[in-house]
Design a protein around this nucleic acid. Sequence first.
DNA 1: AGAAATTTGTCCGTATGTATC
DNA 2: AGATACATACGGACAAATTTC
Lengths: 140, 140
Amino acid sequence: MPTPHYGQPRYRAIADELRERIETGAIPPGALLPAESALTAEFRAARGTIRQAIAVLREERLVATDHGRGTYANPSWNESGLTEGSEPKRSERQVAADPELAALFDVEVGAALIEQQSLIRANGVVGTVIRAYRVLWTKQ
Amino acid sequence: MPTPHYGQPRYRAIADELRERIETGAIPPGALLPAESALTAEFRAARGTIRQAIAVLREERLVATDHGRGTYANPSWNESGLTEGSEPKRSERQVAADPELAALFDVEVGAALIEQQSLIRANGVVGTVIRAYRVLWTKQ
DNA sequence: AGAAATTTGTCCGTATGTATC
DNA sequence: AGATACATACGGACAAATTTC
C-alpha cells in the first residue's frame, strides 16, 4: 500500500481512471470533477498525488480548473478537439423526475432535474447516447 | 513547528476537543459551532487543519455543515438510517426506444436498447445519474 | 431590493518528515 | 541516491451560499 508503483506510478493510474470517466461520459462535458478532497478520499491517495493526476489531464486539455471553483471536464466542447465534430453533441434541458429518478435523488416525482445529453458518434452514426441527471436544487 | 506529527496529529487533537464540547453539552444540539475563522484563532491552526478536524466529526455524524451557514452540532434529524443496503452502482437493462432516442439511433420507436445506469455519489447521496443507451444489436 | 459582511467550499503553492521501490 | 508516495501543516486567494444591514 505505501508505495508500490509496479510499472505505473499511482498518479498515472488515477489519471487514467478519471480520463475514462470523462471519455465515457460518466463525467459529462462541462461538469465539475469531484473536489481534490473527495478524490483523496475515493482513491485513498495524498493530495499531491491527486493534483499530479489532474495536472496530467490538464496538460491533455481534457480538463480545465478555475481557482476557487473546481475542475471542469472537457472544456473544449465548442472547439473541435480530436474530431472535426460535425455537430454540437451536447445539450442540456430541464426535465421532470420520473419515479425511479425521484427515488434515487430522494426528491418528489416531477421535481425539476437537469438532463445533460451527449452523443458519441462512430463514423458519423450515433453509437451511444448518454444522459446525465442531477437535481436542479441542491439541498431542498 | 512546521509539521511534527509525533504521536497525534493536530487535527485529531482539535477534533477531540470539539467532540468533547459537543458531548458535554457545551455546544448544545442544533447549535452552531464557532466559525472556521474563529477556530483558527482559538487553536492557532491553519484553516485547512480546522477543516480537517471538522471533517472527522462530520464523518462521525456528530456535526453537519451547510455552505454559507455554518456547522451544526448533533443534527437530530439523522433519520438517514445508513441506507437499506448498498444499491448496485451500475446496472444494465433492456428498454424500448422513446421517439427521441429512436430518431438519434435511426431505429423504430420501441426498438430494443440497452440502458446502462451508473450512479455517482457524493458524501453518500446520489449526485448524478448517468444513463447510457446503445442499440441492442449492432448489425453493421 | 440591493449591497456588504460572514461563512463555507475549493484551489494554489509550499514545506517537513517518513517510507518504499 | 533518486523517484514516488503518504500524512500533515501553513498561508493565501477566489468562488458561492447565506445572513445581515
